[in-house]
Simulated scan of single mutants.
Amino acid sequence: MSIAPRAQRSPAQAPLPNPSGWLSTINPVVKILAALVPMVGLLFTRDVFTPALVTIGVTVVVLTGFKIRARDLAICMVAVALVVAWMTFFFALLVDTSQLTDARLVEIGPLSLHRQALRTGLATALRFVAIMVLALLGSLGTTTGQLASALVHQARVPYRFAYGAVATLRFVPRYKNDVGVLRAAHRARGIVDVPGPIGALRRTSRSLVPLLASGVRHAERLSLAMDARGFGAFPQRADRDPATLRVRDGVFLAVIWGAVAATYLFTARLGVLQMTAMLYRP
């Protein structure tokens, strides 16, 4: 009596799990719009509380909508704290102290720090962090294929430009892999550089020509493959998995814009909102 082997499901037939979180199910164009409008508004803010509240809210959305390892999250938090501290100190030194009326907190030789200058530096640093977090919100969970499809179907970008831009984005991981292969080849040949910036400069100069040659070969192969598939021969091109707009996309956009607008109204009612004179006068 023979026992028939159990049918195994091929990798192509296996269901593809979604380990990235619910942010990957949102239309890429909607995510870009949801992040772009608050970015423009943050460019005109001058207070500390508004960008801080926007950063906290967007961070909560990112952490709940995209799965991040605890180690990576801890590294990001430490990096953000260091960036905020450095930018606060740096921009505080750039403030014109002749127009400040408060007393000096610290004075080291020709350098002096005022409370108002530190507040201005902190507001600038928090505004920068808020814009970076919004940029993450607009890009996390989005693949190059989803972005190209959304640009073609929702943003009405010609598919020649959309897929051409996506093809150039895919050069980045390829260059990263080529750099790793070149460094391994150099070590195998016994080429060891001194540590520090001099060694990094030597390694970079040694890798430029091979990377350029590899990029030219890859671009030539890519152009031949696109021509062989008739890319650009017709005004429209079929999409295997076209991007669509769903109810969740509209809800996501409304929630993000509504939360940001509520943040501005809340800080304005508290009397702490400060913006350029073109848009707001307290």
Rank of each mutant, 00 (worst) to 15 (best):
L147Q: 15
L134N: 01
L73N: 07
V48A: 10
Q99T: 06
L23S: 11
M278C: 13
V60F: 04
P19N: 12
R281Y: 13
R71K: 12
R104Q: 07
T101W: 05
A81P: 07
V78D: 04
S207Y: 11
F66A: 11
E220Q: 07
S112K: 08
A81K: 08
V255S: 10
A7F: 04
L73C: 09
Y175D: 05
G190A: 14
L208G: 09
R170E: 11
T267N: 11
R202S: 10
A188P: 02
P173C: 12
A268W: 12
L118D: 02
L94C: 06
G199R: 06
A228M: 06
G180C: 06
Q236L: 13
V194P: 05
L36Q: 01
V209P: 05
L136A: 03
V133N: 07
Y175L: 15
Q116W: 01
S207D: 15
A79F: 01
A254C: 10
T124N: 03
T263Y: 01
G232L: 11
V255M: 08
A117E: 00
A277L: 09
H218V: 02
T101D: 05
F128S: 10
G57P: 02
P51L: 07
G199T: 02
F252T: 05
R115N: 03
A167Y: 14
A162I: 00
S214D: 06
V133W: 01
G138C: 12
I26P: 09
T144R: 15
N18K: 02
M39D: 00
I26E: 14
R46T: 10
T244L: 08
H153Y: 09
R46C: 08
L33R: 03
L136N: 03
G250R: 07
D193A: 02
A103R: 08
V133I: 15
R248Y: 09
V29D: 00
D47K: 10
R229E: 05
P195E: 09
I198K: 13
V80G: 04
R119K: 14
R217Y: 00
V61Q: 11
A135W: 01
P5K: 04
V260R: 10
A150I: 00
R203A: 13
P5R: 06
H114C: 00
V58W: 06
D72P: 02
T276N: 12
V192L: 09
Q154P: 07
S205N: 10
I198H: 12
A79D: 00
D102Q: 05
T267D: 03
A117W: 00
G21D: 05
P173L: 15
E220M: 00
H153Q: 14
T142K: 02
L201F: 08
L211Y: 04
P19W: 13
A12W: 00
